[in-house]
């Protein structure tokens, strides 16, 4: 907004632009360093003197890491399926119906966003320990599902709010029952939202560290935790290569979401 006191409005615009670039650089700096280190033949010595995929090769042929990737993959897929199924049903109820306690239930679903993930993970650990499960595969899957649920609910809420219910009425009118209408009309129409939600949930689970640290059982370690233990003791660029792999996979997923539904729509409320 231009005010009478701002003689030269361009100064404000320039300052904002500069601030934005600095902030962007600050955010991208660690990513760029990681990527540089992972292809640098001289470990950790910058600037890089050449290009190598040696570290990537070492990372992707390590039994430990490949196994951890398998764990992260199955964990991410399972948690995403669970979270999206629950989110879809919750959203269906919240978008279509008015009922007592709706605001409270919404707050409950969104609450993982309000609590620091470490605290949330510790709480889950204590909870499962009290129940007698402790850390384990079910606890890990439940933890990840709860963690990604709010994001699924957000994306699917946007999809369902944009969904024109007369499409369902038209299907019912030509003879489709409620279930058939859901399968043949509703789900295909909100497909982009469902795919975006699923991919985002997967990426969040794939990158999660705190929940996995607390809840992963011995012998079933997700990749970020495995990577952390590796970096703690090994001082080489294999860790950086692995980190770069994680970043690249997430980036690809984000591009997929952006193409499908538009990231802006997904992240905004």
């Amino acid at each position: 907004m231009r005010t009478p006191f701002m003689r030269s409005p361009d100064v404000g615009t320039l300052a904002l632009r500069l601030f934005t670039y600095v902030a962007m650089a600050f955010l991208f700096f660690p990513i760029v360093i990681t990527l540089m280190v992972s292809v640098n033949p001289r470990e950790f010595i910058l600037p890089p003197t050449g290009f190598t995929l040696e570290w990537f090769h070492a990372a992707w042929t390590s039994d430990t890491f490949v196994r951890a990737m398998g764990v992260s993959l199955s964990l991410g897929l399972t948690a995403s399926v669970i979270a999206n199924t629950l989110a879809f049903l919750a959203v269906l109820a919240m978008v279509r119906y008015d009922f007592k306690g709706k605001a409270f239930i919404n707050l409950l679903i969104m609450s993982p966003l309000l609590i620091p993930t470490t605290i949330f993970s510790l709480a889950l650990y204590v909870f499962f320990a009290r129940l007698g499960f402790g850390a384990g595969i079910p606890a890990l899957i439940i933890g990840h599902s709860i963690h990604v649920l709010p994001f699924a609910v957000r994306i699917l809420t946007a999809s369902m709010q944009n969904f024109d219910t007369s499409l369902e009425e038209a299907a019912r009118n030509v003879g489709a029952g409620p279930l058939r209408t859901m399968v043949s009309i509703t789900l295909p129409v909100i497909k982009t939202g469902l795919v975006s939600s699923f991919v985002l949930c997967f990426v969040l689970s794939w990158n999660d560290f705190p929940i996995s640290v607390f809840l992963a059982p011995p012998g079933w370690t997700p990749l970020p935790v495995e990577l952390f233990s590796y970096i703690k003791f090994q001082y080489d660029a294999v860790g950086a290569a692995l980190a770069s792999s994680l970043i690249l996979i997430s980036a690809v997923a984000m591009v997929v979401i952006d193409r499908m539904a538009g990231l802006r729509r997904v992240m905004q409320r």
Partner: peptide, 20 residues
Amino acid sequence: LPPEKREVGFVFQNYALWPH
């Protein structure tokens, strides 16, 4: 009766064509 049992044709104001 639910709508699918009524056997009446309906044309909507916004057409309600299935986009997929």
